[in-house]
Simulated scan of single mutants.
Amino acid sequence: MASTEQRLSALREYLKTLSAGQTTFIVEGGGEFHTSKDPFAYLLEHGAYTPDGRRIVLYPHPIEGIDALSLSFYQMIDEAIEAGKLELPELESDEP
């Protein structure tokens, strides 16, 4: 079994890989792609592809214990990734 020092070292290395304020997507093959943009903005601008052409397949997010509005947002992100891009519907308004 790993010693406490080894576990702490592994945890420190893992924490170094986490970038505060960055969005992490999972790409085909299981790799990670990090961007400074939030998931909504990134998908709206670039679609479900990284700058080097890799396909984004997942945006890791919680699925339990979250409010309905957040769940709806995450579902929209999941649908955009599945479709390959984020498209917003045309705005509608009432007649004046």
Rank of each mutant, 00 (worst) to 15 (best):
residue 19 S to K: 15
residue 16 K to Q: 12
residue 7 R to N: 12
residue 91 L to G: 03
residue 77 I to P: 00
residue 20 A to T: 09
residue 26 I to P: 02
residue 41 A to F: 01
residue 21 G to K: 12
residue 52 D to W: 06
residue 56 I to M: 05
residue 5 E to C: 01
residue 68 A to W: 08
residue 63 I to K: 07
residue 87 E to S: 13
residue 40 F to G: 00
residue 68 A to V: 08
residue 10 A to E: 15
residue 15 L to H: 05
residue 70 S to W: 03
residue 61 H to C: 10
residue 16 K to W: 00
residue 41 A to L: 02
residue 3 S to Y: 00
residue 74 Y to H: 14
residue 78 D to Q: 12
residue 40 F to H: 03
residue 17 T to V: 01
residue 65 G to T: 05
residue 86 L to W: 02
residue 60 P to D: 10
residue 20 A to L: 14
residue 2 A to C: 04
residue 12 R to H: 10
residue 55 R to K: 15
residue 67 D to R: 10
residue 22 Q to T: 12
residue 70 S to M: 11
residue 69 L to F: 01
residue 90 E to M: 00
residue 66 I to V: 06
residue 47 G to I: 02
residue 88 L to P: 02
residue 81 I to D: 09
residue 70 S to T: 12
residue 51 P to I: 03
residue 66 I to M: 05
residue 59 Y to A: 05
residue 69 L to G: 00
residue 59 Y to I: 05
residue 56 I to N: 04
residue 57 V to I: 15
residue 27 V to C: 14
residue 33 F to D: 09
residue 69 L to R: 10
residue 14 Y to G: 07
residue 42 Y to A: 09
residue 15 L to D: 05
residue 44 L to F: 12
residue 18 L to K: 15
residue 87 E to F: 02
residue 22 Q to E: 15
residue 45 E to D: 14
residue 68 A to H: 07
residue 93 S to E: 13
residue 31 G to P: 04
residue 33 F to Y: 15
residue 76 M to A: 15
residue 51 P to F: 07
residue 69 L to Q: 10
residue 40 F to W: 02
residue 14 Y to P: 01
residue 93 S to H: 09
residue 24 T to E: 11
residue 58 L to N: 13
residue 34 H to S: 00
residue 75 Q to I: 07
residue 85 K to S: 15
residue 43 L to S: 08
residue 5 E to F: 03
residue 22 Q to H: 15
residue 62 P to W: 05
residue 93 S to M: 09
residue 91 L to Y: 05
residue 43 L to P: 07
residue 85 K to T: 08
residue 50 T to I: 04
residue 18 L to Q: 15
residue 52 D to I: 06
residue 87 E to V: 14
residue 76 M to D: 07
residue 55 R to M: 03
residue 91 L to C: 03
residue 14 Y to E: 13
residue 7 R to T: 09
residue 94 D to Q: 09
residue 29 G to H: 06
residue 80 A to P: 07
residue 82 E to H: 12
residue 12 R to I: 09
residue 49 Y to L: 11
residue 13 E to K: 15
residue 20 A to P: 08
residue 30 G to L: 04
residue 4 T to M: 03
residue 34 H to E: 00
residue 18 L to F: 14
residue 83 A to R: 15
residue 3 S to G: 05
residue 52 D to T: 14
residue 27 V to P: 03
residue 42 Y to K: 08
residue 78 D to R: 14
residue 21 G to S: 13
residue 1 M to E: 10
residue 50 T to S: 06
residue 33 F to M: 10
